[in-house]
Structures are given as structure tokens and as C-alpha cells.
């Protein structure tokens, strides 16, 4: 199981890390350049719109990595009482319930993006908005994929439980 999952997981994480470094560098640099240009009233008119959409991009990639690190914000009281197989079983079930929500969100955001494409919404000039919005279904899809990997790991662990490790974060 892990022989297939781990390389996939690592490859995905490498791409995501690379994208984050690229976008954050671009964001910090470009946002600063915009301000400097503004001193001469020469900034790019589309600059701020693109910058805000880049936030969506890093945000969703970050959310995917948060899923990998199990760092999503949540209220986790009962899970800490679970031990051994039960722990892995309940975690798998919660992951599956979250996958369902994410898949519905993928479908809803896909509909949204396709509708924006159909009605020809533009971000600026001739650049279509859907090219930037597409990160929403992709992002929820990545989160679902990551959760699937986590679920398969939990299921494997039900049959082959490792000793409990103290959790770092709730």
C-alpha cells in the first residue's frame, strides 16, 4: 500500500511546495513593485486583482498541505480519548465524511467556474476569470485526494496498528 501512496504523496507535496515558493516570491515582489510604481502613478491597473487571485491559489495549495500535515482548524475533543484500532477507525470515518463534503464542494465550484466561462466573465481586459477561479475546484479536489490517502493509511493501520504516539496539536 505505502509503496504506491508515499511516492505519490511526496511528488504532490514537492509540486505544491514549489508552487508556494514561486507564488509567495511573486506576490511579495510584485506587491512591493506596485507600491513603488504608484509613487510615479504608473502601477499596473490589473495588478491588485491578480494579486488577490494569487492569494486564492496559495491559500488552496496551503490548505492541501494543511490536510497532509493534519493541521486543519477544528474542535478535536473526543478523538483524543480514542486508542488503538478505534482511533484509526474513527479517524477514517471522519476523513470519509470530510471527503464527501469536499466532493460536493468540487462539484459546486466546478459548476461555478463553468458558468463563469459560459458567461465570459473577464478579470481584466481579455483575460477570462475562470483561468484564475479554476483553483477552487482543483483545491477542494486536492484536499479530497489528500484525505483519501490519509484514509487508506488509517484503514491499513486498523489492521496493523502502531503504538500510539502523543499528538502535538488538537
Amino acid at each position: 500500500m505505502n509503496k504506491i501512496l508515499d511516492p505519490l504523496d511526496r511528488a504532490l507535496a514537492a509540486v505544491e511546495n514549489g508552487l508556494i515558493v514561486a507564488i509567495v516570491t511573486l506576490m511579495v515582489g510584485f506587491a512591493f513593485i506596485q507600491i513603488v510604481l504608484r509613487l510615479w502613478q504608473a502601477q499596473f491597473l490589473w495588478g491588485d486583482i491578480v494579486l488577490r487571485h494569487l492569494v486564492l491559489w496559495v491559500g488552496f495549495i496551503g490548505a492541501s498541505l494543511a490536510t497532509r500535515d493534519d493541521k486543519h482548524i477544528g474542535i478535536n475533543i473526543l478523538q483524543r480519548l480514542m486508542k488503538g484500532r478505534w482511533k484509526h477507525l474513527t479517524r477514517a470515518l471522519v476523513h470519509i465524511a470530510t471527503i464527501v463534503v469536499c466532493l460536493v464542494l468540487v462539484s459546486a465550484s466546478y459548476d461555478f467556474v463553468m458558468s463563469e466561462k459560459e458567461f465570459g466573465t473577464v478579470l481584466f481586459d481579455e483575460v477570462p476569470a475562470w483561468m484564475f477561479q479554476i483553483i477552487i475546484p482543483i483545491g477542494f479536489g486536492l484536499i479530497a485526494l489528500r484525505l483519501l490517502i490519509n484514509t487508506l493509511r488509517e484503514i491499513a493501520a486498523i489492521f496493523n496498528p502502531l503504538p500510539d504516539v502523543e499528538e502535538e496539536v488538537a
Partner: peptide, 10 residues
């Protein structure tokens, strides 16, 4: 930092 931003954004 972007893992945190992602968590907040969603």
C-alpha cells in the same frame, strides 16, 4: 505560513 493561510482561507 501558507499552510496557516490555507487553513484560515477555507
Amino acid at each position: 505560513s501558507m499552510v496557516l493561510v490555507g487553513g484560515i482561507l477555507v
